[in-house]
Design a protein around this nucleic acid. Sequence first.
DNA 1: ATTGACCTTCCAGCAGGTGGAACCCCTATC
DNA 2: GATAGGGGTTCCACCTGCTGGAAGGTCAAT
Lengths: 134, 134
Amino acid sequence: MNIGDVANCSGLPAKTIRYYEEIGLVQPLRSANGYRTFRESDVHRLAFLGRARALGFTIEDCRSLLKLYADTDRASAEVKQIAEEHLERIDRKIAELTEMRATLAHLVDACAGDQRPDCPILADLATAQEEDCH
Amino acid sequence: MNIGDVANCSGLPAKTIRYYEEIGLVQPLRSANGYRTFRESDVHRLAFLGRARALGFTIEDCRSLLKLYADTDRASAEVKQIAEEHLERIDRKIAELTEMRATLAHLVDACAGDQRPDCPILADLATAQEEDCH
DNA sequence: ATTGACCTTCCAGCAGGTGGAACCCCTATC
DNA sequence: GATAGGGGTTCCACCTGCTGGAAGGTCAAT
């Protein structure tokens, strides 16, 4: 299988697949003309990567997960730990965004959004935390 | 005011302040020895930036917001539009993360997390979307 | 004179790709 | 045989928003 076919069926852009090879996540063979040749196992790895990335795992997480996946003697605890840490990262991110959202929604709500210059959004950005410097 | 003082009272690292100067968000003066000298207005701009960044606005948003802030003839509608677009970005991001979270939490829940190799997390990553390539 | 805390510039790197240039390969068609 | 098209290849630069570090200048106090 050439890279274009793999891109088609894995959903990953060819560029990304090349990048994954570059950083050692997948090692396709090469045919005589220099083209990458992907085995079923390579395609499988790429599908795995696509799915893991879609769940937001970092590339390093993916690397660990692939290693564990290949190791049939792994303890599921190791996998679970990676997933749990990622879950916590996601929760922290959601909390952060939710807080931003609340503040921002409040400001947007207070802003008339007309031709007049008065704007609570700018006012807030300009005046918040003035206590730091006298 | 030197950069260290500004860093202290704005909460922004000195590195970040230099970076903001480099990309033209703030233009401190220079004293004879080459040190950056920040006026009250510069400090104010930096505080504005810190606050806007904390709300998740991009640097380009910040640039626009600062321009609008400086223009006393602005229409609040322009500000509101930037904020609303950002709010939508945040909402999309939250939705994305929430979906990830749900899937991941489900998988983590199903995983025993013990010494045995059986792992629903890996199983899911390995088998999802197999229909793309026969 | 020297120490230590400032400040300066410049260069490299992070994550995770993406875009583009310049070029090779393969098949089909005229 | 020339050419057009649709693959593929490499390499290099760029994106966001900083951050770290090296190498060096400055300033106040000892």
